[in-house]
Simulated assay, not measured.
Amino acid sequence: MTALLAVVSACSLGSSRSGPIGPDQLPASNTGARPYKKIGVAPFEVRTQHTDSYSRELMHSYVLGAIRTECQGIIFVQPSDEDYPPVLRSLPRLESGNLDNLQVAIAGRQLGLNAVLVGTLTSVGTEEKDWGIWWLKQNRHYVGVQIRIEVFDTETATKLVDEVAARQVRIDEADVEMIEQQDRIDSGFIEEILEVIAQKLDDDICEAIGDQHWKSYVLSADPEQLWIASGSRHGLRPGLVLEVFDSNTVMEGFGGHNYFKPGPKVAEVKLVEVQPQRSKAVVLTGGDIKPLSPVKFKQ
């Protein structure tokens, strides 16, 4: 049987629990002085044939479920949310077909996100391999799945994570015949593989996100006050003093990609009104605050 997939090795190892995502629940309390980081999750893409419509839901369930379990103290803005922002449903792409990292970062800034996570089911297929000593060789058949996870930093538009992971499971002759007849691979095989792959990805992803400082972004500003794209739902409270940075200068990169250049601190602000999704602050020192400028805790 002609191979439909050449599987590459998984990129990272980790240990975690995985499984279907339950109801969206925030952590019970914010015990420290740091607010919750907020990560936007774009709808996972399926860029391969031989799958059914359930494959996307399986990716969200197992892969995102494992990441959410492993990454503590983080709010995930995910497609199942009732107030899920439309801008995340169709992220802009370059002519090459790759995601426009700068526009992804801008979209994330508008929502006060620390990062944007994008998952893709890149390949699903079958492969036939010879097994055994040469005079006792026999053919064995496998189903393979490959996924890619990218995490974009909203402050710089760089990638915090770009992981590819893959795995195979053995199938029997009856399964091969069924796949050939239906011209698709049953979601049960995909589910079994995704459950294992999810446990290999979450550790590196959580470490990369955990290494980032909390940040949000300026929605609007005038010389005396400004609105920030985070609120009480993310752990902010009146009286907190934050720093604002000018990180809006764009640098050209390779392959049509552009990036934000980290800039200097331009102001200190104090929160005076905190709503669920946004906060109002007054300027204590400095000024010249531009919309979409990063806001961080005072160090």
Rank of each mutant, 00 (worst) to 15 (best):
M1I: 09
A3L: 09
L4N: 08
L5D: 06
A6D: 11
A6L: 12
S9I: 07
S9A: 14
C11K: 06
C11I: 08
R17Q: 15
G19Y: 04
P20S: 15
Q25T: 05
Q25L: 15
T31V: 13
T31Y: 08
R34K: 08
Y36P: 02
K38N: 00
I39V: 14
I39F: 01
E45A: 15
V46R: 05
R47S: 13
T48K: 01
T51K: 05
R56K: 15
E57N: 13
M59P: 02
H60I: 07
S61K: 09
V63F: 07
L64H: 04
L64D: 02
I67E: 02
E70L: 14
G73C: 09
G73N: 15
I74A: 06
I75W: 03
S80L: 15
S80R: 11
P85R: 01
L91V: 03
P92M: 11
R93S: 14
E95H: 09
E95R: 13
S96P: 04
G97L: 09
N98T: 12
I106V: 13
L111V: 06
L113N: 03
L117W: 02
L117H: 01
L117R: 02
T120I: 13
G125E: 01
K129Y: 08
D130F: 13
W131D: 12
I133Y: 11
I133Q: 10
I133L: 15
W134N: 10
K137A: 15
H141D: 09
H141L: 15
Y142E: 06
Q146L: 12
I147P: 02
D153E: 10
T156N: 07
V161I: 08
E163K: 06
E163G: 05
A166E: 02
Q168G: 10
Q168K: 12
Q168D: 13
R170D: 14
D172A: 12
D172V: 03
E173M: 13
E173V: 12
D175N: 14
I179Y: 03
E180W: 11
Q182C: 08
D186G: 12
S187Q: 13
S187N: 12
G188I: 11
E191R: 14
L194W: 06
E195D: 12
A198Q: 01
L201D: 03
D202S: 15
D204H: 11
C206K: 01
E207H: 11
G210K: 05
D211M: 14
W214C: 04
W214T: 03
S216C: 10
A221W: 00
L226S: 06
W227E: 12
W227F: 14
I228E: 07
I228T: 02
A229S: 09
S230I: 03
H234L: 11
G235I: 03
G235F: 00
P238D: 07
L240T: 00
L242Q: 02
E243C: 09
D246A: 09
S247N: 00
S247K: 01
F254L: 14
G256R: 03
N258H: 11
Y259R: 04
F260H: 04
P262W: 00
G263P: 01
G263Q: 04
E268F: 08
V269H: 04
V269L: 05
V272L: 08
P276C: 07
Q277A: 14
Q277Y: 10
R278F: 13
S279W: 03
L284V: 05
L284M: 11
G287E: 05
P291E: 06
S293Y: 01
S293T: 03
V295D: 00
K296C: 09
